[in-house]
Computed example of a mutant assay.
Amino acid sequence: MNTNSFKLAAAGVLAFTAFTGLLAPATASAALVTGNATISIDNTAFSTATGGWTVDNFFDASFNTTAITGSLAGGSSSTTNMLFPVNTNVATVSYPGNRTLQATTMDSGNTAVGQIGLSGALTMTGALGDLFPYDFKLAKFGGVWNLVTFDTSFQNTTFLQLANAVESVDGSGQLSLSGDLIFGGGMSPTTASSIFGLTWSSFLGVQIANQNLVVGHLSLTPAAVPVPAAVWMFGSGLLGLLGVSRGKSKAAA
């Protein structure tokens, strides 16, 4: 490449860098939480902590409007890396069959308020028969992250809590969260939004032998932020311009 071509290429790179810098905000602003939660349950530990209860089936987001029963077909028996997408609705949506789609109202910059709605459902079996945790959300109560279910009869009920939680906000203003799942102290969202402040520990009909026994793991990863189309168009044009310049250089030689 001759001197003129090199100068043109260097100028193009500087222009591209400056252009993308203008498109990217100097300081990322937080926004409503997006992404996917991945949950894994260790049934050996879960059974130990609950006196024999196990999580048997996972029903993904395609079952959001379906009444969950012990005889419902179509779920997965794997309890590893279950995908619970973050809901995009900002108001809770009610469906027949006692189902709701929990809203996402939490801003990534303030996780002390609001909630993160999650799509997905589980079935459990134990001494009392079948139980169905569904219509999940993540929310903080007293500084502790809680995985909460909702039912029109029992309303908001804490299923599990996060221990060793790690949260951060990335350069795009999106929340990342991870932690171990335990039964914890059985903290209820609020007595005003729960029937008698019940938790899933109460439903199981046993005294949780070890509230701090890790029974699973949860990780929340943000949705990918797409690169603006203008950046790709500008970059393609720049590469084309450099190609033409290189062609001219070869012809001149």
Rank of each mutant, 00 (worst) to 15 (best):
N2F: 04
A45K: 04
T105N: 02
T191F: 12
H217G: 10
S5C: 12
A10Q: 13
T88W: 01
T54R: 05
G74Y: 01
T158Q: 06
V225N: 05
T152F: 12
N110Y: 03
L131Y: 14
S201Q: 15
L220M: 08
T80N: 09
N156Y: 11
S188F: 08
L220Q: 03
P189R: 01
G184Q: 03
N57T: 13
G51R: 01
V227M: 08
L220E: 00
K137Q: 15
T157Q: 08
T69C: 02
S47T: 06
L238F: 02
S29E: 15
V206N: 13
A139F: 12
S168D: 11
N36V: 11
G70C: 03
N81I: 03
L8Q: 12
W145F: 10
V86S: 00
N98Y: 08
S153D: 11
N81H: 05
I39A: 01
V148A: 03
F46W: 07
S71H: 07
A18V: 13
S119L: 14
A121V: 02
S94W: 01
Q207T: 15
G126V: 05
S47D: 03
N110T: 10
G74N: 01
P222G: 04
A209S: 14
K248E: 10
H217F: 12
N4C: 10
G35H: 09
N89S: 07
N210I: 07
G21D: 09
G21F: 09
N64P: 08
A15R: 06
W145K: 04
S119K: 06
T111C: 01
L128T: 13
T199N: 04
S168V: 08
L22Y: 14
A252K: 14
K248G: 10
L242K: 03
L239T: 14
I182W: 01
L204H: 01
W145T: 05
N81K: 06
L220S: 02
R99M: 00
N210A: 08
Q207H: 11
